[in-house]
Write a protein that binds this DNA or RNA. Structure first.
Length: 118
DNA sequence: ATAATGACTGGGG
DNA sequence: ACCCCAGCCATTA
């Protein structure tokens, strides 16, 4: 399978530029499933080993890491983001500043897998 | 086909 | 602004 929702999530996440972050809900919306935010998180949870997906650029709507912020996972995500220039204020990210604007309409269509012929 | 899981999200006190 | 409750959807066994 190469068109599963999970793979779609990976494609969108790969579109997130360094130094910016997106929310699970935002990715879900881009995929046309505004209520599938949980599934987006699960998709990242199901990430294989040899992946090249910048999963760390995905945070929750609160602007905080959904991983165990107190555990190694959260620390890793935060470290990766800080390496890209993302600043944490009070343990949170200002989505208004570092929030990804999202893909272009054309890009979104491509991510949705819609044919260019209509 | 059903039941269970999960890195979410929004509203009210 | 923060915490808790209920709804949501896709994948898995």
């Amino acid at each position: 399978m190469a068109d599963s929702f999970f793979d779609m999530v990976y494609r969108v996440v790969r579109r997130i530029p360094a130094g910016q972050v997106a929310t699970y809900g935002q990715i879900a919306r881009i995929l046309g499933a505004p209520r599938a935010a949980r599934t987006v998180g699960w998709a990242l949870h199901s990430l294989p080993e040899g992946h090249d997906v910048p999963w760390h650029r995905v945070v929750n709507s609160r602007g905080t890491v959904s991983l165990d912020a107190r555990g190694p996972g959260g620390a890793v995500q935060r470290a990766l983001l800080e390496e890209e220039g993302v600043v944490f204020g009070e343990g949170r990210i200002d989505l208004k500043v570092y929030g990804w604007a999202g893909p272009d309409l054309a890009e979104q269509r491509a991510l949705l897998g819609e044919a260019p012929g209509g």
